[in-house]
């Protein structure tokens, strides 16, 4: 464990909690893609299949449970909470995410570290996390609604990606065997997509602020 990875995990968790608290506080999920949140929950559920079989550390196990619980809490809020679900942009959040799930699964069947049940699902979760932001990106381009996507959410999401890349660079130079090319390549693609999301986020933000000022 290095400080970059720890800080990356913390900023990732904070970004999820910021979104959950924002939805719960405002009782609104306008502008938030349920499909992206469902993909994130699927990422954690398929990545942490080893939760009960491999014990890495207390930190590792606790964080896995927290990530699964917080991502499912957001999906539950957006699907079941009587007030929140009314503000969901159902007719705008129409990205066909099932094709993304299928493509990632097929890719995981082809590209993985070892052909075992757990490893294939681990690779699947890595690929899926990289593209999970797509429905949110499309929804943002369509709705331009950044009310619930606070600046802090975007900031911590960016910090999470940046810190993880620094963590991989650090591990590459300090550990002899650092062969996590699946996570690194997929992580770089994920960071590029996040940069695209951040670009549209700030465009929408500027547009919204301009309209407010007029």
């Amino acid at each position: 464990m290095n400080i970059f990875r720890f800080a990356g995990d913390m900023t990732h968790l904070i970004s999820i909690l910021i979104l959950l608290l924002k939805i719960y506080a405002t009782k609104s999920c306008a502008g938030i893609s349920l499909k992206t949140q469902e993909l994130y929950a699927l990422v954690f559920l398929t990545r942490y299949l080893d939760l009960f079989t491999d014990y890495v550390s207390l930190y590792n196990s606790v964080m896995k449970i927290v990530f699964i619980a917080s991502s499912l809490a957001i999906v539950w809020c957006m699907r079941r909470h009587p007030l929140v679900r009314r503000s969901y942009d159902k007719d705008l959040d129409t990205f066909r995410h099932q094709y993304v799930v299928l493509a990632c699964f097929v890719l995981a069947l082809v590209l993985h570290e070892r052909f075992t049940f757990q490893e294939v699902f681990w690779a699947f979760s890595i690929y899926l996390e990289a593209v999970a932001i797509l429905p949110q990106l499309v929804l943002l381009q369509r709705s331009g609604n950044v009310d619930n996507l606070t600046g802090q959410y975007v900031l911590f999401l960016g910090a999470y990606r940046g810190l993880y890349i620094i963590n991989w660079i650090y591990r590459y130079f300090t550990e002899d065997h650092f062969a996590r090319w699946i996570a690194c390549v997929s992580g770089l693609i994920q960071t590029a997509l996040y940069a695209d999301f951040f670009y549209y986020y700030y465009l929408s933000r500027i547009k919204q602020d301009t309209i407010m000022r007029l």
Partner: peptide, 10 residues
Amino acid sequence: GDIDSEHDEL
């Protein structure tokens, strides 16, 4: 399992 097979990152 051995370290490199174990996914120690979240």
